[in-house]
Design a protein around this nucleic acid. Structure first.
Lengths: 381, 381
DNA sequence: CAGTCTAGTAAGGACTCTTGCCTAAATGGC
DNA sequence: GCCATTTAGGCAAGAGTCCTTACTAGACTG
């Protein structure tokens, strides 16, 4: 609404940003290359490089051009600009990486969590991984992006328990766990949302600005991408679909999670789905496999129809431990609905880390370009 | 991703934009007032005003300041900057307005459509209204924002028939109908989405960046506001909820629209809801009114639960001909769901025109500020 | 070894914004 | 009725940014 105030300082900042962004997309460039790439004149680039060198944001790598003509000097981003922490937390392990502004993974840590490990163990492992990574990268960890296999409260970043959804990791507070090892902002979201982001940028949904990602595993979750961005909703619970009304095996309406209870596919004493039992039950050749497949496809199909009504996706991507196994049956069923859209299985491996990494690099770059302003001025993810 | 290229021309454009925006929020200002309001120095503002006067974008109104000190000259937006057309099309009438960059309604036309009038009559009425308005405003109609009581294809702007949804106006192509009378872009969306926008800016949802608007009338529709903007989905069909799975009166799962069929509340030979029949049936004192109310509230409640799962709204606003009558019963039912949110009745009158007007003013202002760039660079609504 | 090619520098010009000062004109206290 | 005060606007000077043009230094090419 309010346009920025014009000033010469704004121009200079814009020039510097152009130079930095150029060096973020290519590791080393001469001033002439930066000028050609940005369309800004050589003298102006020289000024900017000098400024940025003085501030330590850019350094002469010592490398020189070869070939015809005068030798040029290569410049690169400074070595002390730090890294972003990317971490995935599941009930089984903590996987953490340090990525730099060029998107390169500089270090990786993986810590297993014993069976039955609680949120305390997860928090400790997260802190340990962060501490080790912080020691291994110059400039430290300037921001963190965390993927968790549980719903995340958007405003606090804490994991939360929702009715009728399994609480796999438990009461974890990533921003608190990382406070000592990460200087800047910590962004937390659930794995399904990050996976959707990965599919949007690198995967099946590359040219779809509106799609739905469905995760069918121990838990049931979805992610919504609208107008090119993952939408999280007010609390951050978009895609928590356990209680969506669906047709049960006998035709009566029931919440999605109850369908699994009715089919005897939940783990005892839990709302988590027994993935092994489910897979053997729908394996070809098993008695009444088709019946189970049909019941599941009807329920999942109702979720897709709800998504069509409320999100209007261009396509639907199905991931998770057992989701891709059922894609064909679901797609067949769904194709007979009033407004079907294509249904595709997910293909990326570690999609949640890929998505989180994308966001981390974006955030780190924004911090470098203008330390005062965040990457997403409006949406606080 | 790519920052703008710095240049002195950019600075000048920014100054001019500041001046124009100031004159869009206040009808007349002296140069000194513009300087104070924008924080830009007086000589710079004087330069800009001179430039803009030369281009006809700004004019000296002839008015002079009174009071102490030297007399100042008031400036205002030029008289030939044109207006935006705002029009609402229902099966009964076409309502059209011309609004200027200050948001003032300069002229209004209302044309009734006879019963049974088809899309041809609607197109003619729209064109007639536009033509009359274009004659009554200096500078003509530079853009149009149309609200239609049917689903709208996002890419073409045409009204479309969807399965199980009433087609109230019929096969109308507003951009084609207006081509002769409107110079710039024509934006078409359905009335529910515009109403939601109005509630977001002026109504019940003023400080909710994530909410759902439910329209319960002859047709059934919803609108989704996520991260502060109306989300339309790939085709533009977000909120077309007729086929969402809900519990029917007997407990079996059925699409929402079938619930009304089962209750005998549809108009014969149509999927449209018989609003009069419905209202008398749920009126207090009527036999079995409570039973009907309960059945409707269960079905509508399931829609709200689907919205909670896939949109995670902060609140829900219910409008439409009979929606507000049922708010209490729906809210009671919904409060017992696993994740209830507040349910409020809509209050605005003509909400769809209010929402469309907001968008039209935004678009017109953007056209004046930079005739080459649209108001929404990314989302093509 | 002369010609060609390229990175970087230097000089000059055009332009924008700001600060500070000045003028003109109307008000209001005395 | 006079004069200090107040206010809009103009003018000049100065600093800063970017661009174009021209030049230099050095290395490859034939």
């Amino acid at each position: 609404m309010a346009p920025p105030k014009p000033s010469l300082e704004l121009l200079r900042a814009l020039t510097d940003e152009n130079v930095l962004r150029a060096l973020m997309s290519e590791a080393r460039l001469t001033r002439a290359e930066i000028a050609a790439r940005t369309g800004i004149s050589k003298p102006t680039i020289s000024d900017s490089v000098q400024r940025l060198s003085g501030a330590g944001l850019v350094v002469d790598t010592g490398e020189r051009t070869t070939g015809r003509g005068r030798v040029g000097s290569y410049y690169a981003l400074g070595p002390d600009l730090g890294a972003a922490l990317v971490a995935g937390v599941t009930q089984h392990r903590v996987t953490a990486e340090a990525v730099d502004a060029l998107g390169r993974v500089r270090a990786r840590e993986e810590l297993a969590l014993g069976p039955g490990a609680g949120p305390k163990a997860a928090a400790d492992a997260l802190a340990t991984a962060a501490s080790r990574l912080a020691d291994r990268v110059r400039g430290g960890l300037r921001t963190a992006v965390i993927s968790a296999a549980d719903p995340v409260d958007r405003t606090t970043g804490r994991l939360v328990r929702l009715p009728d959804a399994p609480f796999l990791i438990g009461d974890l507070d990533p921003p608190a766990a990382l406070a000592a090892h990460v200087v800047g902002p910590v962004h937390v979201d659930n794995d399904v949302n990050w996976a959707a982001r990965a599919e949007h940028t690198d995967g099946r949904a590359r040219d779809a600005d509106d799609f739905v990602y469905l995760h069918l595993g121990e838990g049931l979750g979805g992610a919504v991408v609208s107008d090119g961005a993952v939408r999280r909703g007010h609390h951050g619970f978009v895609g928590e679909i356990a209680h969506l009304w669906t047709p049960g095996p006998d035709g009566t309406a029931m919440p999605l999670t109850e369908v699994f209870a009715a089919l005897g596919l939940r783990r005892p004493g839990s709302t988590a789905i027994d993935v092994d039992a489910l897979r053997t039950r729908i394996a070809p050749g098993t008695a009444r496999a088709d019946e189970t497949r049909t019941a599941l496809a009807r329920a999942v199909g109702a979720v897709l129809e709800a998504a069509v009504s409320l999100v209007d996706p261009r396509l639907i991507v199905i991931g998770g431990e057992w989701g891709p196994d059922l894609v064909d049956t679901v797609a067949d069923h769904f194709a007979r609905s009033p407004r079907p859209v294509p249904v595709l299985p997910a293909t990326l491996t570690e999609p949640e880390l890929t998505g989180a990494r994308l966001r981390a690099v974006e955030e780190l770059r924004a911090l470098i370009v203008s330390p005062t302003r965040p990457a997403h001025p409006t949406a606080s993810d």
